[in-house]
Design a protein around this nucleic acid. Structure first.
Length: 978
DNA sequence: ACCGCCGGGTGCC
DNA sequence: ACCGCCGGGTGCC
């Protein structure tokens, strides 16, 4: 190994945390100040992730020391290169030992032991984060100087200084200007060039400036490499819009690019990282991928499909022409195989081929739906019929035969096996291609797409829609209990589609994850923000995938926090950010502290690897998308006297209680009760019958007996589940499946939390609050109780409500004016939707329904039924606010009736966008029903505050626990007019 | 000389 | 390490 003598003093940051090469991951966990359920309703969960402990750090000062024992280790460093200090408590010679590693994680040496003695104490007790830079790293045989900066919370400053003093060390105080951007003017020795102080002192930008700067990050469409357009492969049937062609060109160029990754340059025969001053002989791989962060509805799925087919192999598209030419021949092959299959296998295989040769789009879709309708095997019993067939199929076919899902095609679709497909394509290829194929045994050829379950069917549909019918792709939907777990066969596919849950589940079952034993050509994460929680098993499962090209598609990018961006970067495997320390030192902290250099780096990073267009972005002066207008109307509702009476009595009673909490200063401790009251009020605004299903708030509980505790926890869980918030599991970040509550009152999916407990045993901790948890202490929601609640309602004699009257009036009016217009009727309360069914039926409306409780198969049916524009198709969809994912397309509707306001305006907007999206031809009119003089009006106020907050939320220091507490208390006051 | 000084051996934690 | 430190050899000027 060798190293450089010269380097630019570009960014000499002396800031870090003492994470080791792979970090102290538990510090990434959510802050623990409050139980999660207290906030989830009003402050979006993202905020939990952003008030980071590191951001509270201040610079205590710097210190000089020495790295010793260089000759025993291979790690080398340049002058002025950043190094990581890592505790090594198990060192047999000194329990205080501290390793010094270079950016690559190779050990350079140790901190000299007298200094290590005090540093170990500071690091072990997390009194400060110690970060190192080696001013003269090059050409040292035995020792080298080390500069350290100590960062920590203000309250720890004194103890750190005292400790150091006790051992005879004294920190050099930080320059008064600002701590974060420390110019290292410690040069002038013999080992390297000297550095002058920077001409300009570090500048701290104002919040305003920061925000403006951040906005600029994405406004760089004018760059050449992003305005270039590219025609998709011939195999793509759909015409791409200009912005999609731009994305295609950019993505293909990124995949094929041989450029160095951002912040790397070649210097002589070495590759040099300009941020950390690290250099090495091996050329760092560029990310053959990136982040496509276009707004929802700009066609990310189509763009991704175009990339797959256009940059199919070695930078060339899927050869459509040959396939066309050989169409006849191919049919022959298929038939041959069919004969062969018939000989040794079941009627199923026979059916596959027969069906394949002349099946309609419908039958093809239905077959895919067949495959996709089961949830993960763990969560539901498999369907015996199907399983039997598949088993038989696998058994009878030695090993080669493989069930491949053909895409739904407009004209025809096929189901056949991979073997026949490989053969037929082989014959269609040129000699060159053919020869490649033989040694292609090792060469990855398969694209893996991972998406949330909610958009799985969307991907299948879109492949069907956008690819010409004569094109044949080996496409396998790796989903359902019968999924074939054979890496050899999966790696012969062109495309494998699966969900995060399947991936995570397979990953959890050790040694049995075919997806992890394959080197993929390309991995595409749809809705990539799903991996924002670095602790989640799901994230680990994703990060462990091997791939040459990596893409993240996300409609809700980086907006939330820099942390999210780091998750994505670690998936993209962009050096040196795989290790969070370098990310924190060089970008996250500088940016959050308002440092210009940090922002510059962030900018060039984002410019390099992401493409983002919003609905209002322009291509050649024209908006990317010309969507019809969207109008939001608020219709005020006056409650009937009877409703008002009930409302007031509940409100007065609740206000008295909560007023008491305010006086006692225990509002937040009784947050569940506050939520309960608000929930009841919101329900009354919709329909008084909803009230009966509300969980009655029992008084203060001594909850000493286990049974009492159990009841309290179950009550809390039910409240959380029924309060209309989009409670998600903090482990998988997906909707809760089989919700369970821990003794520390946090709700997770049962499978997720069980996994966590298993992994961390014997000392498993709650991912949210780090309290100890025990698999035996998880409480499930008794399903019969949930069921009885809904039954109670259905047994009640139906009556209308002011809101229902208003809705029906509007719907009937609309039908009179234009019977073809379709509407979404949206509520957070599914029981309310049920109540609405009665008058809809009575008035002769054809309607369908979509809510979270429906099985995947029923959802898909419901969506297709509604999207169908044929006469007699439903004109109304009853939609629960959070049903379906971002990808849900309900563009057949042009009216939305929002029956009750949501806490989070973003949730409402997302819901509106399900019909106000690509494909919408009509003006979209949204009506929000808001009860006058009620909690609903107050919710609107809070929504506005939130919108303002979200607009200016980036980059600055996040509110701390106290700020949040105060904000919360203010919200409660607003909500119940206190 | 229970010192100083010399010079060889030696070297992370 | 062109150092520091150790410990043995040595001892007026």
């Amino acid at each position: 190994m060798s190293w450089m003598f010269k380097r630019d003093p570009v960014w000499k940051y002396l800031q870090t945390v003492q994470y080791g090469a792979h970090g102290n991951v538990s510090r990434l966990s959510y802050p623990t100040f409050f139980p999660r359920f207290e906030f989830q309703d009003i402050i979006p969960p993202d905020d939990f992730l952003t008030s980071d402990e590191e951001l509270d750090s201040v610079l205590f000062g710097t210190l000089r020391g020495h790295v010793v024992g260089l000759r025993y280790y291979t790690g080398v460093v340049n002058n002025n290169e950043m190094v990581a200090l890592q505790r090594e408590p198990d060192n047999p010679y000194d329990k205080n030992a501290i390793k010094v590693n270079n950016v690559n994680g190779n050990q350079v040496g140790h901190v000299k032991k007298d200094l290590a003695a005090v540093l170990a104490y500071i690091m072990d007790n997390k009194l400060a984060q110690v970060e190192g830079v080696v001013p003269f790293g090059a050409n040292n045989a035995f020792t080298m100087p080390l500069h350290m900066a100590f960062w920590g919370r203000e309250e720890n400053r004194k103890v750190v200084l005292d400790q150091l003093k006790k051992h005879g060390f004294k920190l050099i105080p930080p320059p008064k200007t600002l701590g974060f951007s420390l110019e290292s003017n410690w040069g002038s020795g013999r080992a390297g060039p000297s550095y002058s102080m920077p001409v300009h002192a570090a500048v701290q930008m104002t919040t305003e400036q920061l925000k403006t700067e951040f906005d600029k990050l994405f406004e760089d469409l004018k760059e050449d490499d992003k305005t270039h357009e590219m025609e998709p492969a011939e195999a793509i049937e759909t015409l791409l819009l200009p912005h999609q062609k731009q994305a295609l060109a950019w993505m293909v160029s990124r995949e094929n690019s041989e450029d160095l990754p951002p912040f790397w340059e070649q210097r002589n025969d070495l590759y040099y990282n300009t941020i950390t001053n690290f250099s090495e002989k091996d050329r760092p791989e560029n990310v053959h991928g990136g982040i496509l962060a276009d707004d929802m509805g700009l066609g990310k799925t189509l763009t991704a499909i175009a990339v797959i087919l256009t940059n199919f192999h070695d930078g060339t598209p899927l050869p459509v022409e040959r396939i066309k030419k050989n169409q006849l021949k191919k049919e022959c092959n298929v038939n041959n195989d069919s004969v062969k299959l018939e000989g040794n296998t079941s009627e199923k295989a026979d059916g596959l081929i027969k069906e394949g040769s002349r099946c309609s789009k419908e039958s093809s879709i239905s077959d895919i739906k067949e495959k996709n309708k089961y949830p993960m095997s763990e969560f539901s019993s498999s369907r015996p019929k199907r399983r039997k067939t598949a088993d038989k199929y696998i058994e009878s076919s030695d090993s080669e035969e493989f069930e491949t899902t053909e895409l739904p095609q407009k004209t025809k679709g096929k189901l056949k096996n991979a073997k026949s497909e490989t053969k037929s394509r082989g014959k269609g290829l040129s000699a060159v291609e053919e020869s490649k194929k033989t040694d292609l045994g090792e060469k990855p050829r398969t694209t893996l797409i991972i998406c949330p379950l909610s958009v799985l069917s969307n991907w299948i549909d879109q492949f069907g829609q956008h690819i010409k019918s004569e094109v044949h792709l080996n496409f396998y939907v790796y989903y359902g209990p019968d999924r074939i777990r054979d890496p050899a066969l999966l790696s012969k596919q062109d495309i494998v589609l699966t969900t995060y849950n399947i991936l995570t589940h397979d990953y959890g079952t050790k040694g049995d994850s075919p997806l992890h034993s394959i080197r993929w050509l390309r991995v595409i994460l749809d809705e990539g923000h799903a991996i924002r929680n670095p602790n989640a098993q799901q994230t680990k499962a994703v990060l462990d995938l091997e791939a040459e090209r990596r893409w993240v598609l996300t409609g809700t990018p980086i907006q939330n926090s820099l942390k999210d961006l780091w998750s994505l970067l670690s998936f993209l495997k962009l050096k040196p950010f795989l290790d969070r320390e370098w990310w924190l030192r060089t970008i996250q902290r500088p940016v959050t502290l308002g440092d210009e250099g940090g922002l510059r780096r962030l900018q060039s990073l984002i410019k390099n690897i992401t493409l983002r267009r919003t609905k209002t972005s322009k291509v050649k002066g024209k908006p990317v998308l010309e969507l019809p207008e969207r109008k939001v109307f608020i219709q005020h509702i006056t409650l009937s006297d009877e409703e008002r009476k009930i409302y007031q009595s509940v409100k007065n009673e609740g206000r008295a209680t909560i007023g008491r909490y305010f006086n006692e200063g225990t509002v937040l401790a009784h947050y569940a009760d506050v939520l309960g009251l608000l929930l009841r009020l919101r329900q009354i605004c919709c329909h008084t019958h909803l009230l009966t299903s509300a969980v009655s708030s029992s008084g203060p509980t001594g909850n000493d007996t286990p049974e009492e505790l159990r009841k309290t926890l179950i009550r809390k869980m039910k409240l959380i589940l029924s309060s209309g918030s989009d409670e998600e599991c903090a482990v998988c970040l997906d909707s809760l499946t089989v919700p369970v509550i821990t003794h520390c009152a946090h709700v997770f999916c049962k499978p997720c939390i069980c996994q966590v407990i298993q992994n961390e045993q014997p000392n498993a901790k709650c991912p949210l609050c780090r309290n100890n948890i025990d698999g035996n202490n998880l409480l499930e929601c008794p399903p019969e109780e949930l069921a009885s609640n809904t039954e109670k309602n259905t047994n009640m004699e139906w009556t209308s409500s002011s809101k229902i009257n208003a809705l029906m009036h509007a719907l009937i009016d609309l039908r009179t004016k234009n019977p073809n217009i379709k509407s979404l009727v949206v509520s957070q309360f599914t029981t309310f939707l049920s109540l609405i069914e009665t008058p809809l039926k009575a008035s002769g409306f054809v309607f369908t329904r979509l809510d979270g409780s429906m099985a995947q198969k029923k959802r898909v049916e419901s969506i297709q039924c509604f999207q169908n524009t044929a006469a007699g198709s439903p004109t109304i969809m009853l939609l629960s606010l959070k049903a379906g994912g971002v990808g849900l397309n309900l563009s057949a509707a042009s009216r939305v009736f929002l029956m009750d306001p949501a806490w989070n305006p973003a949730a409402e907007d997302q819901c509106f966008d399900r019909c106000h999206r690509l494909g919408q031809k009509q003006e979209v009119i949204i009506t929000k029903f808001i009860v006058k003089d009620s909690v609903e009006e107050n919710m609107l106020k809070i929504q506005n505050t939130k919108r303002e907050l979200a607009a200016g939320a980036f980059g600055t220091k996040k509110p701390n626990a106290n700020d949040m507490k105060q904000a919360k208390i203010n919200e409660i006051k607003t909500l119940i007019d206190l």
